[in-house]
Simulated assay, not measured.
Amino acid sequence: MATNRPNRNNRNNKLLGYLESRKNLTGSACGITGLALTFAGVAGAYWPFVVAGLYGAGALLAPPERPPLPDFPDPSAQLDAVRWDFGKLRSYLADVELPPAAAGRLTELTELLAALLDPGWVAEILARDPEGVHALSRAVRTDIPEAVDTFVRTRWWARLAPGTEAPERHLERQLALLHEEVSVLAASLRETEARRQESHTRYLEDRA
């Protein structure tokens, strides 16, 4: 009994779903048209076939049911999650000892990220740029942790093999590239606001 009840409920849900579907509603409307033709004396003795045929034609011509889109978080909610993860990243970086040059580049990068992620009008502009949110998410969650962690592990091996290329050079280069990428994003957001200002100027000029 317990196993049959879910199956019965599933069949009932499917039946109710079909009764409310566009196919059934459109087919029913066409079937009602067939009944009207029957009462008008047009269908004659073949009225059951006329009604069934019109119902079937209406069901076939009805647009298919469109399933609802997945409820993904909007860019603003995604930005909140990135901001939370950035806080965890800064806590992690505070416990890592880096050479002065790399530490300086990392500070420049994290300060730029903090300015972009700080709640306010800048974050509101960024939230309207899904690609920008994705770029920051990748930098915070993948690129920076990977660069720092790889440096820490490679530095240990470099001590066992002196004379090899210093791992901090790679770290400095990686941080410089990330800073350049985030700077390009910041410049793009600045240009967006500049275009918005220019558009408002043209609007006022045209209205005058």
Rank of each mutant, 00 (worst) to 15 (best):
Gly31Ala: 15
Pro100Glu: 08
Val50Glu: 01
Glu205Tyr: 09
Leu89Gly: 05
Asn24Met: 14
Tyr203Cys: 10
Ala147Val: 02
Arg90Ile: 06
Arg159Ile: 06
His170Glu: 13
Ala45Thr: 13
Glu108Asp: 14
Thr154Phe: 07
Pro119Met: 06
Glu181Pro: 02
Leu189Asp: 02
Tyr46Phe: 12
Glu131Val: 13
Phe151Glu: 00
Asp118Glu: 13
Leu25Phe: 08
Asp118Pro: 01
Glu146His: 13
Arg8Val: 10
Thr164Leu: 12
Asn10Asp: 09
Ser21Trp: 01
Pro63Gly: 08
Leu109Lys: 01
His179Lys: 04
Asp74Ala: 06
Arg90Val: 08
Thr192Ser: 09
Ser21Pro: 02
Glu168Gly: 07
Arg153Gln: 12
Leu15Val: 06
Trp157Lys: 13
Leu185Gln: 01
Arg83Ile: 09
Gly41Ser: 06
Ala102Arg: 01
Val140Met: 01
Leu93Gly: 06
Gln174Glu: 12
Leu79Arg: 02
Gly31Ile: 03
Glu180His: 11
Arg138Ser: 11
Pro145Met: 00
Phe39Met: 07
Phe49Trp: 09
Val184Ile: 13
Glu97Ser: 10
Arg22Tyr: 06
Asp118Thr: 10
Lys88Gly: 06
Ala123Ile: 03
Pro67His: 08
Gly17Cys: 04
Asp74Gly: 07
Tyr46Gly: 14
Gly104His: 05
Ala2Asn: 03
Arg196Gly: 12
Gly27Glu: 04
Glu20Met: 14
Glu193Val: 14
Phe39Gln: 05
Leu60Ser: 09
Gln174Phe: 04
Pro67Ser: 05
Pro167Asn: 00
Pro68Ala: 14
Thr142Asn: 08
Arg155Trp: 06
Tyr18Leu: 15
Asn9Pro: 03
Ser76Gln: 15
Gly34Thr: 00
Ser28His: 02
Ala43Phe: 01
Arg8Cys: 01
Gly44Ala: 09
Phe72Lys: 13
Tyr203Gly: 12
Pro130Trp: 07
Pro167Arg: 03
Asn13Thr: 11
Phe49Arg: 10
Gly41Cys: 03
Asp74Phe: 02
Leu171Lys: 04
Gly132Ile: 03
Pro100Ser: 03
